[in-house]
Each structure stands twice: as structure tokens, then as C-alpha cells.
Design a protein around this nucleic acid. Structure first.
Lengths: 222, 222
DNA sequence: GTCTATATAGAGATAGAC
DNA sequence: GTCTATCTCTATATAGAC
């Protein structure tokens, strides 16, 4: 940092994105006004519209800049594992780690903002706002398809629909584990003050237990 | 229903609550205006303030009227099981079913509005709005404490902190399973059109698998 | 690129007639 | 209890000077 008051023009964009990310996480999209964002970022109100056009486009850019990296990181790990395996199916635990572990490692990065972003992302999966959900779905499509395919091959004896459901359940458990910890904290009287990096091993063993659980009997009573 | 246009004064209150429940679920709290609610309920704009005071108090009442029943139903089942057991610890699977199964049965009630409410509730656990989170925490406190105590006694060999985390993970998986199904649906191309009642057995086996998963090794690297 | 000033729309809430 | 009309505040967005 060269000077407290030096706001280079290139910086303005990033300052807005950083401020928006935190405020969206704390107050939601509708609960965060442009004035809050520009005030927190220390830039002029008109700067948001100049750099991003509209508030909706700003929201998209907040997600895009981190989500691209996250999903690329996931795919890099998967590519590498599949190349090493040379056509043989992978171990389910390794697939789960490549997808969920990578996200948890991002969530453990408190200082770089990864934690803030993963909290925001977790909340946004169930976001009412339709354009956000659609945007997320598109950003995720390729990556999710790749991981589901890997799981299908890793667990050929399990019905595909069942794997799909369990992937969904795992997403839910992870999102809450990251975004919703505050909530239960209020109820039960805290998880002490554990650093987010402590979460990963606990969650991973829970996810794998759920994925490997014996199948229920669905045929009985419709 | 006696007449399409007959709005008895006692009805007005319920009509507002029913309309608000659906709209809050579809558009969130900030995304739902008083005008949307009164328009959908077919009542006058001023009626909300007359019957509930403020929008915040309306939100609280939407939750209170169903949450009281849900948590009472959970406690009734737990009380009965504990009475039958006469001091002996319960099976973890039965405790989980009393808490999560009861919620899933409410979520399977599409026509009576239980499904709508459970979607809304699932979203709200990670709601940014602080007063809503605090209100939920208070409404849940007693019930969660009772179920955690039951689990502590059922699993004396497992560290209490670990049980607390896994309860949290189960809450997350359930909330997403109910509220977030739309999201993954967009990504992966649908869960067909399964009725919500089909969800319960799938989720319950996942939750129990997670709860029983072997513990990870936490001591190694801090 | 950055700023001030403002246009326009919509929000929650209420006063007072009925 | 219900309605109309309206107050007040705040939101997003933009036009135009610098």
C-alpha cells in the first residue's frame, strides 16, 4: 500500500468488489445499498454504475471473479487424478475431497477473503432472487457434471439418482457448515472460537459417512 | 368457504399470514413489499399495520404460528420415547427421526402449506437479517437442547463437541434438501418430479450415515 | 474517471373518514 | 375493522460539469 488516500483508478474496481462481497454476506443483496458499498469502499456513489453498469451486474462480478478460480481448481485436481488412474474408477473419498475439500480450503482463507466469499456463496444457493440462482447454475454446470460423472463411475452399483441426491445433501451440509455456523452458535452457546480450518476434517468424515450410508428401501409404500 | 368475496374480519389475519408465507419464500423478506402481500391476500394495504404493527412483527408471526407446533411435535415424540425407555439411553436413529423426521413430515404436507413453510425456514437459518436469526434462535433453544442431551446420552463415547458439529451438519443437509432442491435442479437437469414425501427416506439414511461416520483425526496438525 | 446534483420510483407507515 | 390518501424516507440510476 503506497498511501492511505491513494486510490488509483484500477484500485477503485477492486475496492468496490471487496466491499460489496463483505456487505452482501452481512446484509444480503437487497439489504445492501449502493451507498453502503461506496461508503465502505471509500469511492463515489456513481463509481459503481460507471464500472459495473447496474447492481445486478455488480453482484454477478462479485461471484464470477472467485467462482471461476474455485471451479478451475476443482477441475485441475480431478483432471490430475483421472490422468493418474488411466481410465480406472477413482475412490469416492478422493472425488469428494477434490470437490468439497477444495472449497473448504478456500473457506479456511480468512485473510484473503475466501472465508467471506464462501459464506456468501453458501447463503446464495437458496437465494430467492431468480437471476442470481440462474447465474450460479450456469457457472457451476460444467464442474458439477464432471464430478457427478466421476462419482457414477466410482459407484456403479448405486443408482444414479441416489448419487445425485447425496451430492445435493453434501452441498447442503457444506454450505451450512460454512455459512450457518453463526445460527447454531446462537442457539447452543458457541463452537468455542475454532478457526475455520478446523472444520474441514470434521465435515469431510461426515460427508463420506453420508455418501457411503446403506441405501434406504424406497419401493415399499409410494 | 362460504363465498368468494366474503372476507370475515377473523379471516383477514390468516389471509395475510398465508400470503406472506408464500411470498417470503419466493422473494425473501426484503424482496417482498407490503403491497405485494396485501395484493395477494386480497386485503387493504393498511390491514397489515393494523393487525401486526410492523413488517418485522408480521415476519415473526409467520414463523411463530408454525414453529411452535413443529417443536412441540418433536418434543412429544422425544418425551414418549424417553418415558418408554425408562432412563436407558435411546437409539441414535430414533432421536434423529424424532427431530428430522418430524420436520420432513411437515415438509411433505404440500397442500396445508407445510412444504412452503419448511422451504422458508430452511432459507432463514442463514438469513442475514439479525433480528430474524435471533428470534429463530430463541424459538429453537429449548428443543435443540433437549435433543442434544438425548444424543449425548445415546453416544457417550463420542466427544460432545463432535456431536454438536454433526447435529449442525444434519441441519444443513436437511435445510438444503428441502429449500435448495430448485438450485441443483437447474444445474443438473432435475430430480424428475418427485413428491416431497419421497425425500424423507433418502435423507434419513444419509443423515444417519453421517452421524455414525468414523471420527477423523483432529489432533495431528493444528 | 470522478464528482455533484437530481430524476424517478418504490418502500413502510399513518391520519382520519367511514 | 376497513379504506383512501398521503407523509417521509430511501433506493437505483443518470446527466453533465470537471
Amino acid at each position: 500500500m503506497r498511501d492511505d488516500n491513494a486510490k488509483t483508478s484500477a484500485d477503485t474496481r477492486s475496492r468496490i468488489l471487496d466491499a460489496a462481497e463483505v456487505l452482501f454476506m452481512e446484509h444480503g443483496f437487497d439489504g445492501t445499498s449502493m451507498r453502503m458499498i461506496t461508503g465502505s469502499a471509500g469511492v463515489n456513489l456513481a463509481a459503481v454504475n460507471y464500472h459495473f453498469g447496474t447492481k445486478e451486474l455488480l453482484i454477478q462480478e462479485v461471484f464470477r471473479r472467485r467462482l471461476t478460480d474455485l471451479n478451475n481448481a476443482r477441475l485441475v485436481v480431478l483432471d490430475q487424478m483421472e490422468a493418474e488412474a488411466g481410465g480406472a474408477p477413482l475412490k469416492p473419498s478422493r472425488i469428494v475431497d477434490a470437490f468439497f475439500g477444495t472449497a473448504l480450503r478456500m473457506a479456511a482463507d480468512v485473510e484473503g477473503g475466501g472465508h467471506t466469499f464462501m459464506c456468501l456463496l453458501g447463503r446464495t444457493y437458496t437465494e430467492p432472487n431468480e437471476f442470481v440462482r440462474k447465474f450460479l447454475a450456469e457457472e457451476y454446470a460444467e464442474c458439477v457434471e464432471r464430478f457427478l460423472s466421476a462419482l457414477y463411475r466410482a459407484l456403479p452399483e448405486v443408482e444414479r439418482k441416489e448419487i445425485l441426491w447425496r451430492f445435493h445433501f453434501m452441498m447442503g451440509a457444506m454450505s451450512y457448515a460454512i455459512a450457518g455456523t453463526d445460527a447454531l452458535q446462537l442457539v447452543t452457546g458457541k463452537f468455542d472460537d475454532e478457526h475455520p480450518s478446523r472444520l474441514a476434517p470434521r465435515l469431510m468424515s461426515f460427508l463420506l459417512g453420508g455418501l457411503r450410508a446403506p441405501l434406504a428401501d424406497f419401493g415399499s409404500n409410494p
